[in-house]
Design a protein around this nucleic acid. Sequence first.
DNA 1: AGCTAGTTGGG
DNA 2: CCAACTAGC
Length: 488
Amino acid sequence: MSRLSNASGTDDAPALVRFGDDLRVDDNPALTAAAESGRPVVALFVLDDGTGRPPGGAARWWLHHGLAAVRDDLAALGIPLVLRKGAADLVVPGVAASLGAGLVTWNHRADPAAQETEARLAEALRADGRQPRRFLADRLFAPGEVQTGAGRPFRVFTPFWRAAMALPPPHRPKPVPQGTRAPADVPAGEALESLGLVPVAPDWAGGIAAQWRPGAGEAARRLAAFLDDGLAGYAERRDDVGVDATSCLSPYLRFGHLSPRRLFHAVRDRAGADGLGADGAKFIAELGWREFCRELLDQFPALHEEPIDHRFAAFQWRDDPVGLAAWQQGRTGIPLVDAAMRCLWQTGFIHNRARMVAASFLVKHLMIDWRAGERWFWDTLVDADVASNPASWQWVAGCGADAAPFIRIFNPVRQGERFDPAGRYVRRFVPELAGLPDSFIHRPWEAPSDVLRTAGVRLGETYPRPVIDLDEGRKRALAAFEDIRRGE
DNA sequence: AGCTAGTTGGG
DNA sequence: CCAACTAGC
């Protein structure tokens, strides 16, 4: 006992930095505070599947490699990373005790359950005579900072973002700390491999590994490439699903390899210097959606389970396991939807526009509960975010705060012809349709038989017929929504 | 961050 | 024939 109180009372008692969704050394305020204390520093990551929403399969693959990356980045600063498993409010105080830590820092997490645990954790640390400190690294603005004139949270994105952009800009990112050192004794941890984050057999992650390299170094490379090649024309090209015109930075934000403030200022500085005001504003507004989703999660902690719009509690979603499986596996017979869902399975990612179309098809045309889609995305997306994923599904389903009304139903053929006019996206992920001409690539069921024959397509054999007639599905959804609207 | 059906005005 | 525009879902 005396050892603990002595240790935490001296300046040379080590600082412990708990990592979470902030796998970076750049603009990491918890790390910077530990470094600036002048104490030796140890980093800790606790895999705690009992607190909050455990990451899905694709995110666990990313986490494995992201931890390896941040371990290397920390090692370059002379800081060891200790890996542990278990309940964070028990494990962190235990590690802090064996280290004799004085200062214990971490960055705020978006998951409401994690925040509850962290409140208990802070209590436990204080009771042990240590100094817990929490920082905000995951947001541009503090929770609740963006308010209506009446001091209430916004429920609609556009006024939210207008008010946010009228505030002083988020403060500048912090540089990588200098002069850090490790203590003589570092508590034992687990080997990364023993956390069991990556699939062994079958290894379904090959396509993901081919597409992505987790880590802050790759995030910085992608950001630089986007600023050089992607920002100019972003506003106009971002919806083209067949062209790689988006930044693909979402998983790097999800795991905190890239700080939102670093990204905000990098884009704003470049857009200002290069006269790309509209492109910069459009891109930064996407960060604004991420911010808005976090505000929603703060207000609605059950965001992935409960519709914000209570009218939808009574909505009769269809129980359709066959339709759900067809959607998940990319064999609905609707080319753009199937391309999106196969892209998801292969790469852990879907372009924003294709995401909306695929999600809309499940919720509107198949009338399957948005929560089933949300769970599938949660398990398969490398960027599955505790706030953005459920909030966006509620938006698509029309039951969210700032929801597109339920009656806004995407037509996947029309969307395909507008945003993938050359069929590049469909041909890449649905190769059995590649031989079709552009005029039928998004509607093979309307192609004349000689066109199908020439393309080597046999509907119902080489590629499915639509699981539902689009017009019929649209009318059914509208009718069901009318029932709700009348009953409200 | 929609779609459809219907209208109008121009070739 | 089409593009542009609108109301209503």
